[in-house]
Design a protein around this nucleic acid. Structure first.
Lengths: 83, 83
DNA sequence: CGGGATTTGTACGTATGTATG
DNA sequence: CCATACATACGTACAAATCCC
């Protein structure tokens, strides 16, 4: 999960991109639980807040949904369609 | 800008609601500069991050755009239509 | 062009609340 | 009751863009 803190693109966007790629590549199946925020923190070396910010992007895109106390889930595939 | 920190609705959502109402009521004309984040902090009594989170909601709704170094602007009215 | 003031963007650390199991 | 996991909020620091003198 290489994140370059000095890259042109902000780290939270790099993380969002990386996760989006993994989801769209089918690496993380729909309806499946995704690595927890804590795991993503460790994988990426970013802070909790920054990880959440990346997840916010993907939630806004409709790719992910979060369930308090349960985890992070990939939304059923319905291609690209915003709210 | 009464925000109830103990309300059922999270403060950042209360602020987003309040701003949305002011925009949709035409109180803040399109293309006009909106109170700065610092001003919104003072008006609402919320922290910078929380104000920004409220603004993120409205930006995602397409109601606002931000311009670094310049400020916050109400988007030209094109009714409700996401990306 | 320099430099300060203003304003938004990004990031971290921390504390607390809520939901689930 | 406890552990895990996400949600909200505050404070802080620094970067980048813009504006104005």
């Amino acid at each position: 999960m290489r994140i370059d803190p000095d890259g042109l693109r902000a780290p939270y966007l790099q993380l969002a991109d990386a996760l989006r790629a993994r989801i769209e590549a089918g690496e993380i199946p729909p309806g499946r639980k995704v690595p927890s925020q804590t795991e993503l923190e460790e994988e990426s070396g970013l802070s909790r807040n920054t990880v959440k910010k990346a997840l916010d992007v993907l939630k806004n895109e409709g790719l992910l949904v979060t369930a308090p106390g349960r985890g992070l889930f990939v939304v059923e595939r319905r291609d690209i369609e915003p709210a």
